[in-house]
Amino acid sequence: MNYTDFKTPTRLDEARALLKELGDAAVPVAGSTLHVFLRDETPRIAVDITRLGLDGIRREEGNFEIGATTRVAELLEFRDDGWVLDRVADAFVSQTVRNAATVGGSIVRTFPWSDFPVALLVLNASMIITGDSDRVVDADTYFASQPFHHFQPGDLLTAIRVPPLVAGEGFGYHKERRTGSDFSRLTLAARLDVREGRVGGLRIAAGSGVPLPTRLTAVEKALVGARPGPKKFAEAAEAGLEEVRWRGSAGLSDDYIRHLASVRIVDVLTQAYEEAKGERS
């Protein structure tokens, strides 16, 4: 990025007004870790949004509300009943990057290997956008395409609302990587609840290994109402393999990623199921 100026508003309305006035010439910045991946050399004005009070995690009407400029490191440290995003944060690059990167910055633009969209999809999160017309966008809609489609000049993602896990629910997460700081080669997440011995509800999603983070609805359909177990999970995974086109990266073949997905779908379902049963340590 080629920044020509740096603005430091201290109020949300001030920041929004600046962004609206400057239009395409301005870019909101917080952790700035995303900029490594942006090759745009057009001169821009950076509008620092870290002084707007948009950070922190709190309970709001039963949900977790995560300020958009909350550092990923804080997600790792936070603890509360039904909180699972620490597991995603733990696999997020390195502590150095976690200290700088914000959760909002991680989802205003998505890459195939983005970590949080996969988890937020299965957690059925909502994105709160403050603009001329404030709105709440559900994860399925928000991540259906590149998120910038949801923003007009002056709009800001201000928070992410995440329903907590409740009794009988479990969460599974796996990020396939070569080293601790690697980009994901395949990310899978699942949220599953068990009612009377059957799968009551299930959201499962994949990232990396696929063009953009996406729900695996065929797996969900195959399992909802079924008795959970290894065999059933494997059958459902097969259904998931046909649903999307799996693709390899970094020297890994498409065939291998497809095979890996079949294994890891079962793994995250098993994790979630064990947690739902209260067996996960």
Binding site: S94, R178, T179, G180, S181, D182, F183, A250, G251
Partner: peptide, 26 residues
Amino acid sequence: TEQYLFNDKGRMTNPGFGEYKLFTLR
């Protein structure tokens, strides 16, 4: 983990630590 990846024209396609992975202490 270390691996040079080349395309069919002899160009290295992963010349950076993002894709050419080294172990770190963790």
